[in-house]
Write a protein that binds this DNA or RNA. Sequence first.
RNA 1: CGGAAUGUAGCUCAGCUUGGUAGAGCGCUGCGUUCGGGACGCAGAGGUCGCAGGUUCAACUCCUGUCAUUCCGACCA
Length: 575
Amino acid sequence: MRWTQTFIPTLREVPSDAEVPSHQLMLRAGLIRQLMAGAYTWLPLGWRAVRKTAQIIREEMDRAGAIELSMPALQPLDLFERTGRKDAFGDVLFQFEARRGDRRLQFALGPTHEEVITDLISREIHSYRQLPLTLYQIQTKFRNEERPRFGVLRTSEFLMKDAYSFSTSLEQLNDIYDAMYDAYCRVFDRCGLEYLPVEAESGPIGGDASHEFMAPAPNGEDFVVRCAACGYAANQERADTGRTATAPAENDAATDPRVVDTPDAGSIEAVSSLLNADPSQFIKTLIYEADEEPVAVLVRGDHEANEGKIRRILNVSRLNLADDALVERVTGAAVGFAGPVGLSCRIVADFDVLTIPSAVTGANRTDQHLTDVVPGVHFNPDLTGDVRNAVADDPCPKCGQPLETVHGIEVGHVFKLGTKYSEALNAVYLDSAEKKHPIIMGCYGIGVTRVVAAVVETCHDENGIIWPDAIAPYTVHIIPLNVTDESVMQTAETLYDQLIRQGIDVLMDDRDQRPGFKFKDADLIGLPYRLIVGGRGLKDGIVEFRHRSQPEADRVPVADAVSHAVSRIAAAASR
RNA sequence: CGGAAUGUAGCUCAGCUUGGUAGAGCGCUGCGUUCGGGACGCAGAGGUCGCAGGUUCAACUCCUGUCAUUCCGACCA
């Protein structure tokens, strides 16, 4: 492609709306333009990267035995009512009404396709002989994000590969799951994206039923904990803290708690500065409503409660932070002054709460706190367990070494669904004994456009993007330094034709611009290999070849330029 | 949905405090010079100052409302 014939609107200045590197670079390099918050146009250059990424995904899905199809984004709202996900999605689900004749129809735009595909399978699959089956599509998804952000990393409309597996047994499901997991590793390897498979919230099946694929990046929205020693990695929500202390620390010198006045100090932060005490000496008391029953959850002041873990330890299905009225009824005090001493409801304590020798906590009286509270002496929890998010320096649950936390961008998710959707939508099969069973499902997603953004987010320097070969919009960037110099242009044109004949994607910057201008744009759009044709080199019969991340160019005789480029590209591809 | 900020030329921004004919740099158009890391000269085009209402002789400037975008937080099958 010649630059003058395509559309690559580069920007010299950083647009004021862009904060994170990927957003800034994708705008500046002419990959995307914003239409509104959460919706972007993919310009020609960006779209090529998306298509190359999609093609890699397609190849790896096919290799793993999945079959491509395409389902409508437009869906009847009724399907979501049948699986209960109309309410579960809430405002995230785009819904609307449209007239058809004198009827009014309710529609949704698909945020994902479990309902549609399960409905299809329920109609078409009846026998164990038709299973297992894995289907996938690459398609636009719609989610009404409360707060779209970070450019194309979090949008209301995005391209996703979603695959669904249908099987008759857990063994079949596990085999498919493992094949998908491996395929995902291959996809991200091929895309040149650094990634981390992590254990994620597993839902109904439990065990190792869910993994997320995270691209480590400072601006990632997700938190991952990992152990450098043994390789354990998990979503922060999911990760065990590795703590086990169940007995309170010994404290023979326990005195009665002291009451201190803490007017208007209802937060840990406010009380800690008022009393000049570290938050780790505090017991944070959160009142939850668990299946209609109020429960007090105790975590150390510097820790965060984890609702998934609380739900599991209490074995309840509904869990909500209590509203102000309930807090006041349970504690007898305004919100912010709850404490375990003298509390009548059930008390669940995190392991670490017990190890505080002498704690500060709410007094259950407005504007008062207690100090010198000793766990096991002044109060006794009904349950003790791991009910908080893991943090850095917690011991690894596998090997005990300290965990570290990293930010990550979620680029993929594999999930053993079980029979939730097949039961709701009556997708069943008959086994060889003519017995009916719900089909066992798995689902597997990759955010295609998010992969591209994650690559840009992690592969760049101060001058611009550094594309991995596999998903670069073009592989070779030819720069004739002076388009009015006939010998320069003739050489460039010849190299352009020959490289294209070798099956290589080539962009030639044939704009009548000064060299510095073109170099800056070349750095910005970041194509992997650059072929510079200038009058100066041509006098010695050479052109310059250089990788985007290579500081000095190779001087190559014109006659060898094509074979040099081809072998360099091939060598990189075989690594 | 809570908190904060910003809307002025295609882009980045000044002007607003103290009301009085709309500004700069870059980009764009034409001509000329230049041509290995975002050149230079000359001549131009381009804005109902987000929108609506109000105050005023007069509003980019003050007031009210509204919309949009961004950031922090809550939310995220």
